Amino acid sequence: MKLIIFDFDGTIADSTHLTFQIYEKLSESFGLKAFTETEIIELKALTMHERLKKHQISIFQVPRLARKTRKIVSELMTEIKPFDGMKDVMETLTHKGYEIGIVSSNSKKNITKFLNHYGFPHPKLIYGKASFFGKRKHLKRMHRKLKSNDTYYVGDEIRDILACESIEIKMIAVTWGFDDEALLKETNPSYIARKPEEIIKIVG
């Protein structure tokens, strides 16, 4: 059985344009270093650890920041739209009989609200609130629970690629999300998709 697991933000949902707005709200709550919108965009070319260093954020602050980010995103859900073509991709894969899942740092509540609003097919499983560096555990759990013998994870960040290392999951890195394509290539994903329809060609 073939299983296609998707990341949510930056892969299905185009929340990238809200990055500056979200960061401003986090800055107010946590007293983070101020950045211009241009400087925030330039962070796409940095790894997660480099971003934390540039923001002067301790790794121990990340869980609290993640919880606050999910709350802010929940308030902004009506402003988030799907990437063009992603609904068609998920519908096509569902019609082909593939199992679909979502593993994300966002909450299951936010994801379900978004999918319902835009009429997406519902995944077999949604695992939300994955920690910033803890997606591997959720991916492995879903892979085993659905007893897949051919699993792909579709995501837009280096940490997604790293999460698939050493487990039986092929990684499809998409270039329309948060991390820069050059950065993704350096981490050697199994595949790179530059357009949503390329995902269908890759998984067959």
Rank of each mutant, 00 (worst) to 15 (best):
M1Q: 06
I4W: 00
D7G: 11
D7L: 10
D9R: 10
I12K: 02
H17E: 11
L18T: 07
Y23R: 10
E24L: 11
S29P: 00
F30E: 09
F30A: 13
L32S: 08
K33S: 11
K33A: 12
E39H: 11
I41G: 02
I41L: 11
I41F: 05
K54M: 12
K54R: 15
H55V: 04
H55E: 15
Q56F: 11
S58T: 13
I59E: 14
R64Y: 13
L65D: 03
K68D: 03
V73F: 07
S74Y: 08
E75T: 13
E75A: 14
M77N: 14
T78L: 12
T78N: 14
T78K: 12
T78F: 10
I80V: 15
I80L: 06
G85Q: 00
H95I: 00
H95V: 01
K96T: 00
Y98K: 00
V103P: 04
I111Y: 01
I111A: 06
T112G: 02
G119V: 01
K124Q: 13
L125R: 12
G128A: 03
G128H: 02
S131Y: 09
F133C: 03
G134D: 12
G134C: 11
K135E: 08
H138G: 03
K140C: 05
H143Q: 15
R144I: 12
L146R: 05
S148N: 08
T151H: 02
I158L: 15
I158Y: 06
R159K: 13
R159W: 01
D160H: 06
I169C: 13
V174C: 02
V174G: 07
T175F: 02
D179N: 15
D180W: 00
E181N: 01
K185N: 09
E186S: 15
T187M: 10
P189H: 05
S190I: 06
R194F: 04
E198Q: 13
E198I: 03
G204S: 11
